[in-house]
Amino acid sequence: MTQRLDWALDPDETRIAAAALEDASELARSYGRDWDTASAPRLVRTLVLKACRRYMNNPNGYTQSRAGDETLGWSDAAGENAGTVYFTEEEQKLLRGLAGKSPSLASVPISAWESQREAPVGVVPVAGGGKPFPLFSDEVEPW
């Protein structure tokens, strides 16, 4: 990861970078699948390192900084991710796609509990909700 940063890390930054790498790896597993360093696709490793670099460049999540009056600012745009290791929405989609977790749509029939009753054997329903008309002489073996 140190090759992706513009400066040499001191011991504290090395410790923080190692923790960020661990956090980003866990996040990648949660969005994708249970990859390890050997089985993860190259793009997953790239996304993990990209998230770590983003964090190491701005660990506090500042969006504005001024040297004169020491003004610092945060934005609500990053939301809960400000100052943490995170993947953007596009990166999350990529991780899900690499894991084969494509969003899909399914149709599932549902009904209320005990709402579907079988029609009685040997009778024909009558329009208008009247009493069913017997068609066969035997309810057990109508044929």
Rank of each mutant, 00 (worst) to 15 (best):
L47R: 05
M56K: 01
A18G: 08
L27T: 02
W143Q: 12
S107H: 08
N57R: 13
L21T: 10
R96P: 01
G83S: 02
P11I: 00
N58E: 02
P120A: 12
L43W: 04
D10Q: 02
E90V: 15
V121E: 05
A127Q: 07
V126G: 00
A28Y: 01
S102A: 12
S25G: 11
T84L: 11
T88K: 01
D36N: 09
S111Y: 15
V85N: 08
A127L: 11
Q116M: 08
N57Y: 09
T37Y: 08
L72P: 00
R45N: 10
Y86F: 14
G130D: 02
G79H: 08
A40C: 03
P134V: 10
G61T: 00
S102N: 14
L72Y: 03
R96I: 06
E80M: 09
V140W: 10
E90Q: 12
W7L: 06
S104I: 10
P59V: 10
Q3C: 05
R15Q: 10
K131A: 03
Y86W: 13
N60T: 15
L43D: 06
A82V: 14
V108A: 07
T84E: 15
A51P: 07
R66Q: 12
G68Y: 15
A99P: 10
P109V: 09
T46E: 14
Q116A: 12
R45H: 10
G128H: 10
G100M: 04
S137I: 12
R33Y: 05
R45Q: 15
P125A: 06
R117T: 05
L43Y: 10
F136C: 14
R117D: 05
S111C: 09
A78S: 09
R42G: 13
V44I: 05
E70D: 05
R96L: 09
P109Y: 02
L5Y: 06
T14E: 09
R29W: 08
P109H: 11
R66K: 13
R53L: 02
G79E: 12
S30W: 00
S104R: 14
G79P: 01
A82F: 07
L43N: 14
D10F: 03
D69A: 15
K131F: 08
R53G: 04
K131L: 03
R117K: 12
S75A: 06
K131I: 09
R29P: 02
L135H: 10
E70W: 15
A40W: 01
W113F: 14
Y86D: 04
A19W: 09
A77F: 14
A20L: 02
T46L: 15
L105K: 10
L135R: 12
E91T: 05
V85I: 04
W7G: 08
E22S: 09
E70Q: 11
P59E: 00
W35M: 01
N58D: 04
S102T: 14
S39P: 06
Y86I: 03
D12K: 13
